[in-house]
Structure formats: C-alpha cells, structure tokens
Design a protein around this nucleic acid. Sequence first.
DNA 1: GAATCCCGCCAACAG
DNA 2: CTGTTGGCGGGATTC
Length: 386
Amino acid sequence: MEAGIRPHPQNYSRKEKSLGLLCANFITLYNRDGVDSVGLDDAAARLGVERRRIYDIVNVLESIGVLSRKAKNRYRWIGFSGIPKALADLKSEALREIAGGGSPGILPASDDEEEFKPPPQASADDLPQGKSRSAENRREKSLGLLTQSFVKVFLTSEVSKPKVETISLDEAARLLLGDGDSSTMRNNAAKVRRLYDIANVLSSMKLIEKTQNSESRKPAFRWIGAIGKPIQEEAVLGKQKNKRAFGTDVTNTEIKKGKLASPPAEGKQRKTVALRSKTEDLKECNLAASRQLLRGNKGYAFGPFCPANAEEKKPGEEDEGKATLDWEAMAASLHPRYHNQALGELFAHYLEAWKSWYAQLAQDGQMEHLCRAADQPICVGENQGV
DNA sequence: GAATCCCGCCAACAG
DNA sequence: CTGTTGGCGGGATTC
C-alpha cells in the first residue's frame, strides 16, 4: 500500500501544524465577547485547516467544558468558565468510580456529564440494544472520553496512595485501557498516540504541562490546572520586546493546491475569507508569538502555549471586575449543586485560580486583529442551509 | 533510536 | 445516496 502521497516541502515544519498551536489559535479566535456559537466550517476556514483537525480540538474541548455540541456543524462556545464545573463533575465522578472498586477504566456505566444528553426519544424505550451497542463501543474510544479519563487521573491524584504527580503517556494509556483483556501492546501504542493529541490540547489550555520524572528523565505530564496548587501565574508573556502586534489573522494555511478540501459550495458564497498567499509572513508571526510565549521558563517548551496572548496595552483593571462578575454568577448558579464540603472547597480553589487566570485572558487586546479577516462577527447564526 | 504526532483514508452515523 | 463525524495507524519529524 502506498498509503498517501507525501508532498515534501523542504521547509516543512510540523510544529507549525501542531494541534496545540491550532488549539491556541482556536481559543484566540473564539474566546472573545459576543461569541457564543462556533461553526465547524467557519473554524476550519479561518484557521486554515481541514475539518478533521477541528473535530479533534472540538472533541477534547467539549470534554473539558469549553464547548458543547449544539447541532450538526455547530457548537456552543462556553469558554474557560465552563472548565471548573466540568472538572468538578469529572472529579466527583472519578471518586465515585474509585469508591466502587474495580478498575477506573472507561466504563460505559456512568455518563460523561450529568447534564443534558438524554436520548432524543423521551417516551420511547423500545430501542433495542443492537445498534447502540456499536455506537457505544465507538464512543468508548472517543477522544472525548479518553480525555476525560486522562484528566480524571490527575484530578484524583491527590487522593491516590502513590500520589500521582506526573505520569507518562504510556502509563496513562495502560491505566486507561478500557477493557483489561485487550491490553495489547499494539492497542496501547495506539492509545498513546491519541494521548499525545490530547496532551497537546490540554497543554495549550495550560491544564497540564510537560515535564519529566525528576529521577528517570522520562518525559511525563503534570497537572497545573490548579487543584491544590496555586496555578503558576507565569503566563505573563509580555515581558520581552513585544513586537506589539502581529496583526494578522490566525490563518496558518499552506494554501493547498488550490483550495481547501471543503465540500462544493454548500450554500455560502463567502468563505473565501482567509487564505492569503503571504503565508510566509504569517508563519513567521505565529512562530515568533509562540517563541515569546514559551519564553520565561525552562527550555522544555512543549509545543503549545497559553491560549490567549494577554498583552497589556493599558494599565486598566476593569476587566478583572467583569471577569469576577461572571464567576460569581456562575458560582451562584452552581452553588446548590454542590453540597459536599469537599466539592465546595474544590470549587473554591477553582474559582480562585481561574479568576486570576481568566483575568489575564479577558483582555482581548490585540486579538481584535485576528477578527478582521471576516467581514462580520464570528457568530454566524443564520445560514440554515438546505 | 526513541519520542512525538500530523495527515488523511475510510468506516460509522445522520438525514 | 450525500454529507458529517471521527477512529485509526502509517510513517514523517523532532528530540
């Protein structure tokens, strides 16, 4: 099998196409006021990637509570504010599983989230398990569930006896093997590959960080999403000679042999928004930006970086107030949900950490430039194409 | 050489 | 059937 044609651009750099970077751009693009809906086509076009990649990102982000599926081709943007709740749910669920004994694998027993998701048919229980079987089987291996399982490992690490501070993807893969029987090495390797994808996105969300076992030099990941720790605020990047604005869209396309592999004009005649020919410059900008973001810490620099470039352009702090408002509102709405002491404290931690974090992200400073590519707000809420 | 993980084929899944 | 989702793993890149 010749598999596929491999164009070999001599200056090809896989780092420029990393999921982490794409995720960062995705966040930058949609984490802003007025955004509440995300269209897959729109995202793919503006980020300059094939649809397939958008699915990867969207799936893991959804499992973290940043997005929620609204309809075909459409997701609802929730933003960082959705993370705490999602993690809290994940954690309580994980603890419950552990208490139940057995393996904390990916059991289809529990639902991912307790929220919506009840089968479309409310009063119809005639569905035979024939079809849902395969459907469920497929979902069992979904990136989303894998992500949640992976996250659970970290969320429960503090109560674990060995106290899992860092784990290698290989360990994680072994730990997350759904069924114990099919623990093939082949199978495990495949799962590891998926975990790499997930780790990239999670890293760019600053929920985890790549490190290495202090002793065994082996690469591993550590949770930095603030569970017990005070989330490192090193996210401040505007410390060097900021180029002041890499005023360009986040497009990072390579300008395919003509156009994106998008389906034949399905109804929208615009869409030719991005796709410029000066890709070189864009690449430069993106790389420069990432370089800067990564700076300040060790030389580890895992591909991804922080979601939004919190560049300060004014010493104002009203933003924080605004962010706080959201948080309080959310906290209020969630309050009745958590009565446990433990969960309450946990949530308090999330609040604290995320508040400061979010404050930085809140300032969508130069991000405006990123939006200028389109001639309208990101929210493309019409177009009910048929 | 090992670790990382992008690319995109193509199978499930709606409609 | 057409279009949407998204497993899955070959093999290129990077470390």
